Simulated assay, not measured.
Amino acid sequence: MRFDDAPDRFKSGNASDRFSGASGVLFEQAMAQTRMAICLCDPHAKDLPIVFANRAFRQLTGYSESEILGRNCRFLQGPNTDPEPVARMRKAIADEDVVVVELLNYRKNGTTFWNALHLGPIYNDKGELVYFFGSQWDVSDVRAARAEEQHAKEMARELSHRMKNMFAVISGIVNVTGRVRGIQGEAAEINSRIQALGRAYETTLDDASSGSIQISEAIRAVLSPYDRDEERLKMVGNGVRTPFTTISIIGLILHELAANATKYGAWASEAGMVTVNWYVDETDNALTITWEERGGPQVDSEAIEAGTGTTIVDRLLSGGRGSITREWRDTGLVVTVKLPRRDEA
C-alpha cells in the first residue's frame, strides 16, 4: 500500500522523521486511508499548525489541502461555536491529555456541522510528543435526533398537563349537569369512566412519543385504585408494546370490568381475586388481555350483559376491530379481549 494521500510536507519533512521503522509506515498509511476524518498537528511549531489532513477531513470540511496545512484547527470555528468545549480542548493540549467534545464547526461554504472531536497526544517509541491527533465525526444527524427526542418529551409533558386540565373540565361539567338535572348517580358513573381514561393516558404520554407504549403502565394505572390493599389483584403481563391509539379502548374496558367486579363479581366478596394477564397472541399478532375472577358470589350474567358498561365495551371493540369473549364459569367470570396491534387498525 502506497502512502499517496499524504502531503509531501508530512512525508519528507521533520514531522515524518519523528517516526521510524515499519510501525511509522503503517501509522502513516492508516492515517491516509481511513474514511474517518483525521488531522495531525505539530505541537513543536508555533500555534499548533495542521501538518496532515487526510482525504476524509478535506471532504468533510470542503477545504483543499493547501487551504488546511499550516493553519490551526480553530479556522473551522465560527460565531455560534460554543467556547466551553474549545476551552476543554485547550486544557487537554496544555496537559497533553485526551478529550472528546462536541462542537459546532463550519465548512468552507459556510454550512455548519456538529463535530464529535477526539483529540489526544501521540508519542514516539522514546516517549516524546510528536503530534496531536484529531479525529472528526459529523454527528449532526445524531444531534438532530436527540433534539427531536427532547422536543417530543417536552410536548408529551405539555400534552399531559393539558389533558389533565381537559379531563378536569369535563368532569366538572358532568357534575354540574348531574346536579342541575337531578341525576347525580349517572353523573358519578360517567365521571368514573372519565377518571379511568385520565389515569390511563397520564402514565403513557411520555412513552407515546415513540409511536407505541408499554401497555403494562396503562393497565396498572387504571386498575390500581380498585386494589387499595394490594392483595386482591394479580397482574402477570409482560412488557408488550402496542399502538398508542388503543389506550382509550383498553382503559375503558378495564374500568368497566373492574366496576362490575366491585359491584357484582369477585371484589364484591372479601375472598374474591382478579388476575389480569396481557400478551401478544402469536397466531394473530393481537394484543390479548385476559381477566379472570375467582371467589365472588353467583352473578346474574344476563343483567350484566344488558348493562350500559357492556354496551360501551362492545361498541368500542367493534370500532377498533377487536373482540371480546365472556365465560361465566363456576369459579367466576373469565374475559378475553383481543385488539389488533397494527396502527391502521
Results as ranks from 00 to 15, higher is better:
residue 69 L to R: 11
residue 69 L to P: 13
residue 69 L to K: 05
residue 69 L to N: 06
residue 70 G to H: 10
residue 70 G to V: 01
residue 70 G to N: 12
residue 70 G to Y: 10
residue 71 R to K: 15
residue 72 N to E: 11
residue 72 N to S: 04
residue 72 N to C: 08
residue 72 N to M: 04
residue 72 N to A: 07
residue 72 N to K: 06
residue 72 N to F: 13
residue 73 C to K: 00
residue 73 C to H: 02
residue 73 C to M: 10
residue 74 R to Y: 12
residue 74 R to W: 13
residue 74 R to H: 13
residue 74 R to M: 11
residue 75 F to K: 02
residue 75 F to G: 03
residue 75 F to W: 07
residue 76 L to M: 02
residue 76 L to T: 00
residue 77 Q to W: 05
residue 77 Q to A: 06
residue 77 Q to P: 11
residue 77 Q to N: 08
residue 78 G to S: 08
residue 78 G to M: 03
residue 78 G to Y: 09
residue 78 G to C: 13
residue 79 P to G: 05
residue 80 N to V: 02
residue 80 N to A: 09
residue 80 N to K: 10
residue 81 T to S: 15
residue 81 T to Q: 04
residue 81 T to P: 09
residue 82 D to V: 06
residue 82 D to I: 06
residue 83 P to L: 11
residue 83 P to K: 10
residue 83 P to T: 09
residue 83 P to F: 12
residue 84 E to H: 11
residue 84 E to D: 14
residue 84 E to C: 06
residue 84 E to G: 02
residue 84 E to N: 10
residue 84 E to A: 15
residue 84 E to Y: 05
residue 85 P to E: 02
residue 85 P to M: 07
residue 85 P to N: 05
residue 85 P to D: 11
residue 85 P to F: 03
residue 86 V to L: 13
residue 86 V to H: 04
residue 86 V to N: 06
residue 86 V to E: 03
residue 87 A to D: 14
residue 87 A to S: 15
residue 88 R to Y: 08
residue 88 R to G: 00
residue 88 R to C: 02
residue 89 M to D: 00
residue 89 M to T: 03
residue 91 K to L: 13
residue 91 K to C: 08
residue 92 A to E: 09
residue 92 A to M: 11
residue 93 I to S: 01
residue 93 I to N: 03
residue 93 I to T: 02
residue 93 I to V: 15
residue 94 A to G: 11
residue 94 A to H: 11
residue 94 A to D: 12
residue 94 A to E: 15
residue 94 A to F: 12
residue 94 A to K: 14
residue 95 D to A: 14
residue 95 D to C: 10
residue 95 D to P: 04
residue 95 D to M: 04
residue 96 E to N: 14
residue 96 E to L: 10
residue 97 D to N: 14
residue 97 D to G: 06
residue 97 D to M: 01
residue 98 V to E: 10
residue 98 V to L: 12
residue 98 V to G: 00
residue 98 V to A: 07
residue 99 V to C: 12
residue 99 V to F: 13
residue 99 V to P: 09
residue 100 V to M: 10
residue 100 V to G: 01
residue 100 V to K: 05
residue 100 V to W: 04
residue 100 V to I: 15
residue 101 V to Q: 09
residue 101 V to N: 02
residue 102 E to M: 02
residue 102 E to T: 09
residue 102 E to H: 06
residue 103 L to W: 05
residue 103 L to C: 03
residue 103 L to E: 06
residue 104 L to D: 04
residue 104 L to Y: 00
residue 104 L to R: 07
residue 104 L to S: 02
residue 105 N to A: 08
residue 105 N to M: 09
residue 105 N to Q: 04
residue 105 N to R: 04
residue 106 Y to F: 14
residue 106 Y to K: 01
residue 106 Y to H: 03
